[in-house]
Design a protein around this nucleic acid. Structure first.
Lengths: 229, 229, 229, 229
DNA sequence: GATGAATGAGGATTCATTCAT
DNA sequence: CATGAATGAATCCTCATTCAT
C-alpha cells in the first residue's frame, strides 16, 4: 500500500500484512459501524458486515465490544465530542456583530460536524432513539443541551447588545436547530427533501440566517438583498 | 361493540372469537402497524404484535397483507392522502394577506396532519426510507413535491402582491419545511429536542411565522412584538 | 353422462348455476385431488387449490373429507377399482394363443388404466407411499397382488399349454410389471426417460411382448421380425 | 477444551461440541439429506432433522447450503457422478460376447450404484422432479442420456457382431432401463412390488438378461434353462 | 349445505453470540 | 489476539383446520 516509502516503518516492514495497528482496531470498527448504522439502521446492520468493512473477522468485533448494543452506544459516545467548551471559549472571545456570530456559528457547525460522518449520530438518535433511552439521555445532555445553550448565548448576546429584539429565546433556538436538522436529514435521509434536488448547505445557512436576522433585527430593511434572492 | 344487545352474551362480549369484520380489518391493521412502525421501527416491529394490537391472530395479518414489507408499504400509501388539491382550492380562494395565509397553512397542516398519527409517515420515511426506495419515491411524488408546491404558491402570491420581498423561493420553502419537520420529530422522536421540554406546536408555528414574516416583509418593523417574545 | 335426456332435469334447468349436482361433489373433488397429488405431490398440494379446481370453496372440501390425509386415502381408494375379477373372467374365456393373450392383457391395461388419470395412483404410491403405510398395504392387496396374479395366470397358461418354457414365474411377472411401471413413469414423471423423447405406448408394449415371447417361446426363431425393429 | 488429554474425556468423546470439521461437514450433511429426502420426500424432510442426523445444529446446515432447495440440488449434484466415461472405456475394452457384456453392465450398475444410496437420486427425480425442472434437466443430461447411450452401445455392438438381431434400439434400451427402474423402486419405494416379498437383485438381473437375450439372440434355443427356470 | 374469515401449530431462515483452535 | 465454525433463540410466513354466518 505504501510502495514508495523508501524507509518504511520497521513494524510495517517486518510484519506488514497482519500487524495493522492493533490499537487502531476499535476506532476502525466504530467508523465502520457508524456508517452502517446510519445507512441501514441498527437492526439491519449485521455485525459481520461491520467486521468486513473494518477488515477484521466477525469474532474480533466481540473482542472489543461485548454486544451489538454496546457497539451502538460506543459509536454514539465516540462521536459525541463535547467540543462545546472549546466553541464557547471561541465565541466568548468574539468581538464582531452578533449576526455574523450566528452565521459563523452555524457555518462552523456545518463544516466541523454537520458535513462529516459525525452528524450521522443525530440521524441515529432520531431513527433509533426509542430503543436506547439511556443513550438518548446521554445525547441530550452532551449534545442537545450544550448546543442549545451555545445558540442561546449567541442570541442572548445579540439581545443584550441591542442588536436583536427580545424574542422568545426558546423558540428562536428551535428555529436555528430546525435548520440544522434539515441539513442533517437532507444529508442522511432519502426523505429529507425532494429526491434529486441537491442542496448547497452554505447557501442554505446564509439564507436562513439572513431571513432570521431580518426578522430579529430591531432595525429596518437590510442591506444585502442578494443573499435573500 | 354490540351496543344494541341489551342482554349480550358474556362470552361474545369478552372474547368475540371469529368476529367477521372483513371490511374493517385492513384499516385496523394499518392503524396498529403505523403506530408500531413509528414507535419501534420496521425491523423491531413483530407481525404478531401488530396482530395483537389489532385484536387478531398472527395469521390474519397475512390474510390481508402478503408480507411485512407489503404491510409497511400499505401503511405508507394509506396515510398519504393527497389532500393537496383540496387545500390548493382552499388557498386559492383565500382573500386575506399572505402572511395570514402562511400562518393558516402551517396551522392547518398541524391540526389535520402533523398532530395526528399520519405524521408518523414522515418519521418512517426518515428512519426506514433507505430500505424502501420505491416507497420513498412515491412519498416524494405524493407528499413532498405537492407540499413544497403548495408552500411555494403561498410565498409566490405574497411576492406577487408586494407583501413579501422577492426571496429565493427554494430556500424559503425549505425554511417552512424545516419548521414542520421539527414539529414532527419533536412529536415522534425522543431525540427531537430536549427530552422533557414540551413544545406548544401552535406557539411554535406562530413564532416561526412571525420571525419569517419580519424577514420577508418588504416593509418596516412589526406591530406585534408580543408573539416574538 | 345422461346425454340422451330430452327433457332435462328440472333442478338443473331452473337453477343451472348454483345447484351443480350436489351428489357429484365428492367425485369432482377426488378428480381434482388426484390430478394435483400426482402433479405436485401430497405436501405441495394445497387444499384450497383442490377446492378451486373442483369449483368449490375451501371449507367445502372438509365437508366431505375430514382431513387432507383422508382425502388422499379416498383418492387412492376411489381409483382402485378391482376390475380384476372382470378381467379374470374375460381372460379365462380367452381361446387363442397365450402370446396374444399377454399382449392383449398389457394393451388392455394401458388403454383402460395406464393411459388414464387412474395410473397416477401408482405414481402416488411410489412417491408418497412411505407416509401412508396402511394405504400402501391396501394398494398392495387391491392392485398389486391381483395384478400380479392375473399376469401369473396368463403366463402359467402359456406354460401349461406348452407355449412357453417353464420359466421362473416370479421373475417373469416382474418383467411384465417393470414394463408397465416404465410406461406409468414416462407418463407421470419428468424423470421417466429422456425429457423430450415421446414414447408410443402401444409400440413399446408390442416390442416388449415380442422380446419377451421370443425368449419365452420354447420353439425356434420367430416369424415377425418387423415388430422387433 | 482439554486438547492435550491423552485419555480423552468421555463426555468430550460422546458429545464433542463445536468440533471443527469444515471439510467433512458438507459431505455429512449431504449424506443425511439424501437419506431423508429419499425416505420422506422433500417437503416432509425438516432441515432440523437433516442437521440432527448429521450431528449438528439447525443453523449449521445453512452455513453450507443457503436454502432447503439448494441443499436438495446439492444432494442431487453430489450423487450424480458421471462415471460413464470410465465405464465406457471399461466396456470398450471388453472382448467377450455381448450377452455377457450386457449382464456385466447391469450387474456392475447394481453393485456400484443401484444398491447404494446413490440410487435414491433416481427415486427423488421420480418423486420430486416436478418441483425442480432445472435439476431434472441436469439429471437427464448427466445420468439418463449417458446411461442410455452406454446401454445402446452395448446392444449395438451385439448387433454389429451378429450376436443380436437388429432390434429397435430405442425400445431395447427402454427394456433394460425398465428393469433397472424396477430394482430402484423395489429398494426405495414401499409400492415397488409385493410388500413383503424380497427381491434378489442379482437373480432378477440374471433372469431379465436371460429372457432378453433369448429374444435377441439370432440363434436357437438356449443352453441354460436353469437361469430361466 | 356452503362459505371464507380466522386461527395457530409448524418449519425455514437469520444472525448475534460463543468458543475451540 | 484473531479467527470463523457452530449454535439456537427469534421471527416471518404457510396452510390445514375450524366455525360463525
Amino acid at each position: 500500500m505504501p510502495p514508495s516509502k523508501p524507509f518504511s516503518d520497521p513494524a510495517t516492514c517486518l510484519a506488514p500484512k497482519r500487524e495493522r495497528r492493533k490499537e487502531a482496531r476499535p476506532g476502525e470498527l466504530l467508523v465502520a459501524a457508524l456508517e452502517l448504522f446510519v445507512e441501514k439502521g441498527f437492526a439491519a446492520t449485521r455485525m459481520e458486515e461491520v467486521a468486513a468493512r473494518a477488515g477484521v473477522s466477525k469474532g474480533t468485533v466481540f473482542l472489543y465490544f461485548p454486544s451489538k448494543e454496546e457497539l451502538f452506544k460506543a459509536v454514539v459516545r465516540e462521536n459525541i465530542s463535547g467540543r462545546f467548551e472549546e466553541w464557547n471559549a471561541e465565541f466568548l472571545a468574539y468581538e464582531g456583530p452578533s449576526s455574523d456570530m450566528l452565521h459563523h456559528c452555524m457555518t462552523t457547525w456545518w463544516h466541523r460536524i454537520g458535513s462529516t460522518q459525525a452528524s450521522g449520530i443525530s440521524k441515529l438518535m432520531i431513527s433509533e432513539g426509542s430503543h436506547f433511552p439511556d443513550i438518548v439521555e446521554f445525547y441530550q445532555n452532551e449534545v442537545v443541551q450544550p448546543g442549545h445553550a451555545l445558540i442561546r448565548q449567541v442570541l442572548q448576546r445579540g439581545i443584550d447588545r441591542g442588536e436583536f429584539r427580545a424574542v422568545n429565546l426558546d423558540f428562536a433556538v428551535y428555529g436555528v436547530v430546525a435548520a440544522m436538522m434539515f441539513l442533517i436529514l437532507s444529508k442522511h435521509s432519502a426523505a429529507g427533501l425532494q429526491g434529486n434536488a441537491s442542496l448547497d448547505p452554505d447557501a442554505y445557512i446564509a439564507n436562513q440566517v439572513a431571513v432570521m436576522l431580518h426578522g430579529l433585527y430591531a432595525k429596518k430593511p437590510l442591506a444585502d438583498p442578494v443573499v435573500l434572492g
